[in-house]
Design a protein around this nucleic acid. Sequence first.
DNA 1: CAGCATCCCGAATGATACTG
DNA 2: CAGTATCATTCGGGATGCTG
Lengths: 116, 116
Amino acid sequence: MKNRQIYNCQEGCPIESTLQIISGKWKAVILYHFTKNNVHHFGELQRNMLDCSRRMLALQLKELESDGIIQKTIYPAMPPKTEYQLTAFGETLIPVINAMEKWGNYYNQRSLDRLN
Amino acid sequence: MKNRQIYNCQEGCPIESTLQIISGKWKAVILYHFTKNNVHHFGELQRNMLDCSRRMLALQLKELESDGIIQKTIYPAMPPKTEYQLTAFGETLIPVINAMEKWGNYYNQRSLDRLN
DNA sequence: CAGCATCCCGAATGATACTG
DNA sequence: CAGTATCATTCGGGATGCTG
């Protein structure tokens, strides 16, 4: 038996794999919205993420789509309408987002407490 | 400690808060090592993260330290020796890292399966 | 409305050398 | 060994305008 490391961050590091998918300035935030509602429209996401430019939102959605995390449905009409939703694969990410949400809430509360 | 990237979603968005602490190219990977072992040395972390430059490792450790996630102990000797470990606060992040690890392993396995 | 193309800047990171 | 200093470079992402 080889003396091999149980965990390594050289190749196949699970953290790096996860980061590969959900890093990017807005992806985790986008996915957070999907844990709250199954379906979203472009404009709606935009209104919920005012600091994310239209360009960035489009880019990040596109990458999430090409990674198989979300899928979009285009309704050919004028004006155009697009619906985004998590794929089954994308849903497997929910626990990660939930953990981030939970810790963020804890962190925010802790910060408030420290002001008093 | 200047020029840190700020992630803004909505006010008090928990995801934003979490990203503020663990985003950065290597922080989550560093924390991952801390979930496996309580104490780490600089050189040891470096050997486990060959793609992270010494400079980046030092930078990210410093930020994690100033955010209260890890603490370091310096043993004044020659050659110098420094130990890093999670603070109690830092330990609250473990579930987040664990969720990322779990998903990353799932993702890696899934990728392997798809090759066959 | 949703999204792409172009131009551009500055933060993030790398490379290299130096030090207690 | 465990960093820091300095310079160079990449690239994420902002601003704006155009289009189906």
